[in-house]
């Protein structure tokens, strides 16, 4: 074998990876945030809403969850401008896609969490005179959050990794940066090793941060 591993080419274009990583984190952060809002709102609608609304939420979840994310990315990026007539840039398109995708997964997480809040605890909230909104803000939501936190951690890490798919519509995130370096240096192995390491480290930091949050929110509970 006469291929010599040489990382110098990767370091030379390190700024591509650096800015790619920054964008990946931004994409994940914004999409997760919007996804959480969608997920939480729809979970409440599902749990407390009219049966008719329940069916709408289920339909959204089923459609999004049964389509590959890659297909959704293409569908929204190429589909919406051609039928709706308004074009948006690849980054916006991807954030929209990942938010909708995150929303569909997080509805399930929040829905299960809300259902797991004991009815007795909600009764206790009623008994001290809390209104429906106060019961949600001070009893149901914080109790639910502690229940779902472990599953939320998994979802967040998956969504962070899913940002790599944005490279297919030329959003200049980490994987796209890696592709660019590979194309221009023909040093595929080195680039992918470095980028794999970056995803690993970021995922690991994210997990550690969420575990820390779990410990802060749930002292006295060992997992």
């Amino acid at each position: 074998m006469n291929y010599h591993i040489n990382f110098n080419f990767v370091w030379k274009y390190a700024d591509k990876l650096y800015w790619g990583l920054v964008l990946s984190i931004e994409l994940a952060f914004i999409s997760i945030l919007i996804g959480c809002v969608i997920g939480l709102a729809l979970a409440v609608v599902y749990n407390d809403g009219h049966p008719w609304l329940k069916r709408v939420v289920s339909a959204y979840v089923e459609v999004v969850r049964n389509l590959p994310l890659l297909l959704l990315i293409y569908l929204i990026f190429y589909g919406i401008p051609s039928i709706g007539g308004f074009a948006f840039d690849a980054t916006e398109s991807f954030v929209l896609t990942l938010s909708l995708y995150a929303g569909a997964y997080l509805v399930e997480v929040f829905r299960a969490g809300l259902a797991a809040v004991s009815p007795g605890v909600i009764d206790a909230g009623k008994a001290i005179g809390l209104t429906a909104w106060q019961r949600f803000a001070y009893v149901r939501f914080p109790t639910m959050l502690r229940i779902v936190l472990p599953s939320l951690s998994n979802a967040f890490i998956s969504l962070f990794k899913d940002t790599s798919l944005a490279s297919v519509i030329a959003v200049p995130e980490l994987t796209f940066g890696a592709n660019w370096i590979k194309t221009n240096t023909f040093r595929a192995v080195e680039v992918w090793i470095v980028v794999a390491g970056v995803y690993l480290v970021v995922g690991w930091i994210l997990l550690a941060a969420l575990r820390l949050l779990e410990r802060v929110l749930m002292p006295g509970r060992r997992t």
């Binding site: 004991s118 605890v121 009623k126 001290i128 109790t143």
Partner: peptide
């Protein structure tokens, strides 16, 4: 809202305690 105001003046203690776990 009316029920909340009425319940505020009626205390209740439950079989399963039902403390706010968080």
């Amino acid at each position: 809202g009316e029920l909340a105001r009425i319940r505020a003046d009626i205390g209740m203690v439950f079989q399963q305690f039902n403390l706010f776990p968080h």
